[in-house]
Amino acid sequence: MYKVTGLTKHMSSEGKTILDHISMEFGEGEMIGIVGPSGSGKSTLLRCLALRTRWNEGTYTSQGESLISESGRASMKNKSQFAYLEQNPQLNPNKTAHKNVLIGQAGQTPWWRRLTGAVRSDDYMGAMDELERFGLLDKAKVPAGKLSGGEKQRIAICMALVHGASVITADEPVVGLDPHSADRVLQTLKSICQEQGKTVIAALPIELAERWCTRIWGVAEGKLVLDVAGRRLTSSEKKLI
Rank of each mutant, 00 (worst) to 15 (best):
K141P: 05
K141Y: 10
V142P: 06
P143T: 04
P143N: 04
A144G: 12
A144D: 01
K146N: 12
K146W: 11
L147Y: 07
L147I: 12
S148I: 10
S148P: 06
G149W: 01
G149E: 03
G150N: 06
G150C: 07
G150P: 04
E151M: 12
K152M: 15
K152P: 07
Q153M: 10
Q153A: 07
Q153G: 05
R154C: 06
I155K: 00
I155G: 01
I155S: 01
I155L: 08
I157T: 06
C158L: 10
M159V: 08
A160V: 08
A160F: 12
A160R: 01
L161A: 05
L161W: 03
V162W: 02
G164F: 07
G164Q: 09
V167D: 10
V167N: 06
V167H: 04
I168T: 13
T169S: 09
T169C: 14
T169F: 06
T169D: 09
A170H: 03
A170Q: 07
D171A: 09
E172S: 13
P173S: 09
P173Y: 00
P173W: 00
V174M: 13
V174A: 12
V175F: 06
V175Q: 13
G176C: 13
G176D: 11
G176S: 14
G176Y: 05
G176L: 14
L177M: 15
D178T: 10
D178I: 09
D178N: 14
P179Y: 09
P179H: 11
H180L: 13
H180G: 08
A182W: 02
A182N: 06
R184N: 13
L186V: 02
Q187L: 13
T188E: 06
T188Y: 02
L189M: 15
L189S: 04
L189K: 02
K190I: 03
K190Y: 08
K190N: 12
S191P: 07
S191R: 15
I192W: 00
C193Y: 01
Q194N: 14
Q194Y: 07
E195D: 15
Q196P: 04
K198S: 01
T199N: 03
V200I: 12
A203Y: 00
A203N: 03
A203T: 01
L204Q: 03
L204H: 02
P205V: 09
P205M: 10
P205K: 07
E207G: 04
L208G: 04
L208T: 06
A209G: 08
E210C: 08
E210W: 14
R211S: 12
R211Q: 14
R211N: 12
R211M: 12
W212N: 03
W212G: 01
C213L: 04
C213H: 02
C213G: 02
T214A: 07
T214C: 12
I216K: 01
W217H: 02
W217A: 00
W217Y: 10
V219R: 00
V219A: 02
A220P: 06
A220V: 13
E221Q: 15
E221R: 15
E221F: 13
G222A: 11
G222W: 02
G222N: 04
K223G: 11
K223R: 15
L224S: 03
V225Q: 08
V225A: 08
L226S: 05
D227G: 09
D227M: 05
V228S: 04
V228Y: 11
G230P: 08
G230E: 12
R231V: 09
R232P: 09
R232I: 13
R232V: 14
